[in-house]
Structure formats: C-alpha cells, structure tokens
Amino acid sequence: MITFYHNPRCSKSRQALNLLEEKGETIEVVRYLETPPSHQELKQVIELLGIAPIDLVRTQEEVWKTTYKNKNLSDEQIIDAMVQNPKLIERPIAIKGTHAIIGRPPQQVLDIL
C-alpha cells in the first residue's frame, strides 16, 4: 500500500499518481489540502524522507514569502507553518512502508516501488 499526498490541481501530482496507478499499486490518496496532516504526521513524513523540514516547504508560495521568509524559525515552527498552511507542503509525496519520496519530477515516485 502506498500513501500518496496529492493535490489534484497540480499537474505533477496527477502525473505521479497516474504512474503509480499504471503499475497496479494499491494507493491511499490523501488530499492534504482538504485533510491536512497533523504536526506529528508531518514530522514522521519528514523523517521518512530524510530531509530537514525547510526542504519540504514550497518557498515560492506567497504565504511563505509574506509570513515566514527571512525569519529564524525552528524546525518545529516550520512544521507548524506547513500544518497551518498545507499549500506550503511540497508535492506529491509517496510513502510505502518506511520509505518516502517526493515526486519531483513525477517519475521519481517509481523509485518507491
């Protein structure tokens, strides 16, 4: 089973989901803009990805630029920012077992198989 953090309005996210579906994978789609992850869930995803919280932030989003940019934020504060503003979360994210990957480019999600 693959958990897939998805934004259906994002073409890269749609492409990555299609690639996984073509492989016949069982997928649990999480529309994270409608059902944002909790702080703990997001922290676990970041740990599975093996990255720093800031590496999961879409820093070109307007809310980041106007509210958070150039502030000295702790990792916990960065995670809180993504929980409060889920559109800041880089997408898509595929998780299978103890492995996770960001689908940028979309073909990268196949590495989780």
Rank of each mutant, 00 (worst) to 15 (best):
K87M: 03
V57S: 09
N72Q: 14
R91K: 13
S11K: 14
V83I: 12
N7K: 08
E76N: 12
E41A: 01
A100E: 03
C10Y: 05
Y68L: 10
Q77Y: 00
Q15C: 09
F4T: 02
Y5P: 06
E41K: 03
E90F: 07
K87W: 01
D111A: 14
I78G: 07
A81Q: 01
L48Y: 02
F4V: 03
L19M: 11
L88A: 02
K12Y: 03
G97M: 02
Q77V: 02
R58V: 04
T59G: 10
Y5D: 01
Q108A: 12
I112Q: 10
T67Y: 08
L56H: 05
I95M: 14
I112T: 09
A52K: 04
S38H: 12
T66M: 10
I112D: 10
E47N: 12
R9Q: 11
R14K: 00
K96H: 01
E28N: 15
E76T: 07
K23G: 07
E90D: 10
Q77S: 00
N85L: 11
S38G: 12
I46K: 06
T35E: 13
Q107G: 07
D111F: 08
P105H: 05
E34W: 03
V45N: 05
L49P: 00
K87S: 09
E61F: 14
H99Q: 15
L113V: 10
F4W: 05
V57R: 09
L49E: 01
K87T: 00
